[in-house]
Amino acid sequence: MIRRVALFLGSLLVVAAIWELYKLIGPEAGGTVFGARLLPRAQDSAMPHVWDMLSRFGDPERRGSDRANWRVVLAAAWFSFRLALAGFAIGTLLGMGLAMVMARFKVVERGLLPYLVMSQTVPLIALAPLVATWGGKVQVGEWVWPRWMSAAVLGAFLAFFPVAVGALRGFASAPAASVELMRSYAATWRATFLKLSFPASVPYLVPALKLAATSSVIGVVVAEISTALRGGIGRLIVEYAQQSTGDPTKLFTAIFGAAALGLLMAGLVSCFEYVMMRNRPRPEEDERALDTIRREALA
């Protein structure tokens, strides 16, 4: 754990060093390689110094404002994080539910799966305004669809797919012999699911949830931008980008905020992974077992 944190911090330092090195030797006004404009401009307005970007966090958000920039970025990241979390939760529930129905009824799997795959080819940018419009019409009694809900739904739209597919594969990953064992106990579908299919799916579920977590962040940020939802990090990036000619470092503070948001989500899933996988054989041990089998097969 400590090693992984140290490794992560070390890699940050390396990236910062490469950044500064490029600023040192890269062409000020950008460059062309074989006629193509490939090399980014190294001047301060396009690639600010690392320390300038970091110190920008401490400066006031705008001239005359008494709020430091980091407060604004943090508030926006927190806002988006909650939306992404909501999207992740909705997407996970939906994905698990769909996978369960598909695992239970093969007909549903055959009928539904192609549509699920197709759903992911719809561009989010096109979908976002639609969802916002539909949401605006939803009203159940006193309850009115809040605007942020559209962003969460779009996060869920990206998140549910890897969960559904991963869980479906996971449920089917229980060895045939174990399925027969449960059958020999005359176990119901429910008991077989709870005691066999679901636990067997966990190694497939963990990477699926990781993907879903980062996808929900992307969904929320894109939705914020394309539905002009204020308060989140997506909106902040657009706003700061417009001001970047006068204040280039400010844009980077928002980008760092978005990156931190993604990391936080991934960290959350890693905690889940640790809890769920601590009683399982390690993948390396599996690998080693496979290696022995391979060697024996060759001998």
């Binding site: 060895p175 012999a177 174990s178 027969e180 064992l181 059958r183 020999s184 106990y185 005359a186 005691k195 066999l196 636990p199 966990v202 009683n279 399982r280 054989p281």
Partner: peptide, 19 residues
């Protein structure tokens, strides 16, 4: 008989649950 759990079975592979 299977529904009434009239037998116990041990397979060729152990088939234990890892978790």
């Amino acid at each position: 008989a299977r529904l009434d759990q009239e037998y116990g079975m041990a397979f060729q592979q152990a088939g234990l649950f890892d978790w």
